[in-house]
Nucleic acid binder design. Structure first.
Lengths: 125, 125
DNA sequence: GATAGTATACTACAACTGTAATCGATTACT
DNA sequence: AGTAATCGATTACAGTTGTAGTATACTATC
């Protein structure tokens, strides 16, 4: 399998934009989107895009005068990779203790709990 | 509440040793322990310890000629902090999607599933 | 007391990150 | 044609991290 590059916190925000929009987007579209959720300067965002290209997390095509960018890695792949690294670091790779920890979280609603339970039900053969 | 310092991957390994041993331990004890699980040079480990002291994740007392180190933050606190940052970055802070993601993991045994289900049961009022 | 062994402290250095400013090329407007 | 606006490329710069080497101070030994 393809190996997923490390994506930093700030870079992750850029990727999220690109994943959200199904179509490839220009640097400016990314900048616009991020100016709503962050207070990063356009140059900062350009830098992040550049780094993601270098890491091969984003690809681009020249379209006339501008570049249009598109993800080279899927959100699922990245989530899996990040999750694994988190799990390894914090829980020594042990899935269950991690889940136990989170299932205790206050913020789960009764509905959430129901849904999660159903999910577990389905896993039983 | 006290604010938890950022602890890097490598530093986390050092903290795990300190949390494991309930008693405060010397640099050498930490080095010994880590030489079994990693191939870091003693100096590397000393550096990590030093950084953790500077971040106030570890404290120390001089005990004759050597220092003995002890955690200033609990494992629980750090796990919570890391978990939160992971959740925010990767899942935009949404707990349920994260759990859904992990509950689908292949590596859960039937027993695990049972236990997790019981945990959820207990949460229902 | 000179020397060899330790312990901690200081220094090193490149890669990655967050955060941007500036440069150079091109285009659009006047 | 000259000038301003725009886009991507290059450069900047400090803080963190991984990974250690070197220096310094103290102690134990010969």
């Amino acid at each position: 399998m393809k190996n997923i590059p490390n994506i930093s916190d700030a870079e992750w925000e850029v990727m999220k934009i690109c994943w959200l929009k199904s179509a490839p987007c220009t640097a400016n579209e990314i900048v616009k989107a991020l100016e709503e959720s962050t207070d990063w300067k356009p140059n900062t965002i350009k830098t992040l895009i550049g780094r993601l290209v270098k890491k091969e997390a984003l690809g681009f095509k020249e379209e006339g005068r501008v570049y249009i960018y598109y993800p080279l890695v899927t959100e699922q792949e990245c989530i899996q990779a990040e999750s694994k690294s988190f799990l390894t670091r914090v829980f020594g790779g042990a899935l269950k203790p991690m889940l136990v920890n989170f299932l205790k979280d206050e913020k789960l609603s009764q509905d959430d709990i129901e849904e999660l339970k159903r999910l577990l039900e389905d896993r039983k053969e």
